[in-house]
Simulated scan of single mutants.
Amino acid sequence: MHSAITIVIPTLNRLELAKRALASAMAQTVPVEIILSDNGSTDGTNAYFSSLTVPKNIRYFHRDITIPVQDHGAFLRERVMTEWVVFLSDDDELEPTFAEQCLHLIRERPNLTFTYTAAYLIYDGFQRPGKFGPRFEKSADFLMNFMRGQRNICMCATVFRIADLHAIPSQPADRFIGDMYYWVRLLSNGGEVGCVGQYLSHYHFYRPTVSNETGRMNIEQWHAESRELADIMTATILNDPTKATDEDKVRALAAQFVAMSTILQTVWNALRNVPRISLLGAMTRLAPSLCSGVESTIYFTLYGTATIILPLPILRRALLWHVRRMTRKEALKSV
C-alpha cells in the first residue's frame, strides 16, 4: 500500500516534545509520509535529528534562522507530495490508527472537504473528551454546531486535501488563527465534512511550562480575526440553498461565538503572563461587543473579573476546576 497521508511536524526549541510527536507519527498502522521541520531551534534539536538514521518515509528540514509561523507553514505545504496531509504540532500526538481510520472514511466518500477525528483536549495533564459530529455532515450544519460549541476541531486531528489548501491564499502575516483561517475558507465552498468518531488525537490545550504563541495573541487582534471568520461562517450558512435559516438567529449566534471566543482568549492571555493592565484596557474597549447576549454577559463578568484580579496560581487552579466540572457535567448528560 502506498502512502496517502503526510504527517507534517513543525518544531522550534521543543526537542523532547518533538520526539514524542515523531514517535506517534512513526507508529501509524498504515504507511505514511512524515515531514519534520526545525524552524531554527537553538536547543540541540538539529544536532539530535541530524544524527539519526531515519526511515525513507521521513524527510527532515532545518532552517538556520527562524521565520514567521505563516511562512514556515507555506514552506511545508509546498513539500507535501501525497494527496492528504495532517499538521501535527510538536506538542501533540496521534493514536496509531489515526491515519488508517481517516483513510477508511476518505475512501468511503472521496469528495469530503476534510476529515477529522475526535480528540482529547488536554489541560495541564487533565484529559477532556472533545465534542464531535456524525460520520458525515454538511458544511453549513458543521459551522452552526461549531459556533454553538458542539464541535471541537483540532489541526492535529484534521486531514486536508493538499490541493485544496494550495487553492487558498496563504495565511497573511497579520493573521494568526492559522487553523481556522484554512478550514473555514474550505467550508465556504460548501461540501461535506467527515468525522471518525474515535479519540485518535491528543491536543494539548494548555501546559503551564510550554509556550504557545496563539495563547498570547493580542485580544483585539483575536476579536477582529474571530469576527472575520464568523462573517465567513455566517455567509456560508445563509447561502446554503437547502436550509431554511433565520438570518437574525444566525447573526446572533455568530456574535455570541465571537464574544465567547474573545472572553476565553483573555484567560489564555492572563495564563501566559500578559500584563493585566493591558488586558483590562482591551476588555474595556471591547465590552460593548463582548456583552452581546445574556450568556456572554455573564461569562464576561465572571471570566473578566477572574482574569484581572486572581493571582496566576489561583487562576490556573480555577481553570482546571472549571474544566473538570464541565467534563463531569457532560458525562452525566451522556448517560
Rank of each mutant, 00 (worst) to 15 (best):
L200V: 05
E330I: 03
E295C: 08
F160K: 02
A254V: 07
P241A: 04
Q70D: 09
R109K: 07
L332A: 10
F136A: 08
E220K: 14
I309S: 03
F205P: 00
P288H: 01
I168K: 01
F75A: 02
I65W: 10
C102I: 02
I9F: 03
I67S: 05
L312F: 01
R185T: 00
Q171W: 10
W268P: 05
P134A: 15
A27S: 08
R14K: 13
C156K: 04
H62L: 02
V294A: 12
G73F: 09
I277E: 15
F142L: 11
Y203E: 12
T284H: 14
Y60C: 05
L186K: 01
T234S: 06
F98K: 06
I263L: 09
I122Y: 06
R14P: 09
V294L: 14
K243C: 06
D231W: 04
A18L: 03
E100P: 05
F49Q: 03
D248S: 15
V193N: 00
I177M: 06
M144N: 07
F87N: 10
A282G: 13
C154M: 06
Y116L: 10
I232W: 08
F160V: 05
Q221L: 15
A318Q: 04
Q171T: 13
F75E: 02
T305N: 10
P68C: 04
M26N: 07
P31L: 01
M144E: 08
D248G: 08
G149C: 02
R109P: 03
S89G: 14
I67E: 13
A244Y: 07
A331E: 14
R14F: 10
G194D: 05
L200P: 03
I58E: 05
K243T: 12
N269M: 14
M283S: 05
R63A: 02
F160H: 07
I35Y: 00
N46S: 11
A119D: 12
L312H: 12
E228T: 15
Y199R: 08
F176I: 06
I65N: 11
A25V: 02
S292D: 07
L17Y: 12
R14W: 03
